[in-house]
């Protein structure tokens, strides 16, 4: 991807401030996500990256500052509003309901009802349509090793569950997919699958925000790395310009960030 053409960021935040009592979690933080990129967000525990992501996904409302989505100012007071605006989040706990089927989970909170009287009066679900679309979404991401779309999510492996959550986000996310530690709970093999999935999401044209502590994963798939420190954006680097240990050093303050921002 070339950055010489002036692209408008998909998500842009300027001067976000969030205080919890006497603790300042966000201290005039900035954020830019460019179209079609994978932007990793790294930072030490307590650096405020979770608060930053929560502000972008509507889980919290910042005290000050502005968030723009495709150039238009937005203000979210609930995760629902962010979702409706096209920002999908894959939470660390995945937000899946274990006892419900894959198809039910894919459409949880935005089920499709039948047309006509069956839908409007009897509120009957269009289960055939939901199954069809869920299967299509999983196939798009090469996840149809999951044979039975009606099997409960609790019968899936950790990686498969992650796959369902990512497929859901990729299906409904019109602007951005945000992923919070998608590989944290996974084994080596399953992490590999999930990283490939994230690259597939990127290929489909959706920009991805990846929050991760796993430096090899970050360096493998990120186009740019947003380093968060002391409640603000400390630096943005490219994985090709710095080493992993440099990135960690910048993150912890042991090293000054390179002069020119990526």
């Amino acid at each position: 991807m070339t950055t010489s053409t002036p692209l408008q960021p998909v998500v842009q935040a300027r001067g976000l401030v969030k205080r919890y009592g006497r603790v300042t979690a966000l201290d005039h933080a900035d954020f830019d996500l460019m179209p079609g990129e994978i932007l990793a967000v790294i930072g030490d525990n307590g650096a405020g990256k979770t608060t930053l992501i929560k502000a972008l996904t509507g889980a919290i409302t910042p005290d000050q500052g502005e968030i723009r989505l495709d150039g238009k100012p937005v203000r979210f007071t609930s995760p629902m509003q962010a979702r409706e605006a096209g920002i999908e989040t894959v939470y660390q706990n995945l937000a899946l309901s274990p006892a419900l089927s894959i198809a039910d989970n894919m459409f949880l909170g935005r089920e499709i009802e039948k047309t006509g009287v069956l839908g409007s009066l009897f509120r009957m679900l269009d289960r055939a349509q939901m199954r069809k679309e869920a299967r299509a979404a999983l196939t798009r991401l090469g996840l149809m090793t999951i044979q039975n779309i009606d099997q409960p999510v609790e019968t899936l492996s950790g990686g498969q569950r992650q796959g369902v959550a990512i497929a859901r986000a990729a299906t409904f996310g019109r602007h951005v997919v945000i992923m919070d530690e998608p590989t944290a709970a996974l084994g080596v093999k399953e992490s590999r699958r999930v990283l490939d999935l994230i690259l597939d999401v990127k290929k489909s044209g959706l920009p991805v925000v990846l929050i991760s502590h796993n430096m090899p994963h970050v360096f493998e798939i990120a186009d740019r790395i947003h380093i968060h420190r002391l409640g603000r954006r400390h630096a943005v680097v490219r994985p090709s310009d710095v080493t992993m240990s440099d990135a960690v050093a910048i993150m912890t303050g042991a090293m000054e960030p390179p002069a020119q921002a990526a």
Binding site: P79, N93, L94, A95, P98, L100, N105, L108
Partner: peptide, 14 residues
């Protein structure tokens, strides 16, 4: 079902 299964997940799912 979803609320009883895992209320936090249900909330995050909207």
């Amino acid at each position: 079902h979803a609320v009883g299964d895992d209320i936090e997940s249900a909330r995050l799912a909207g």
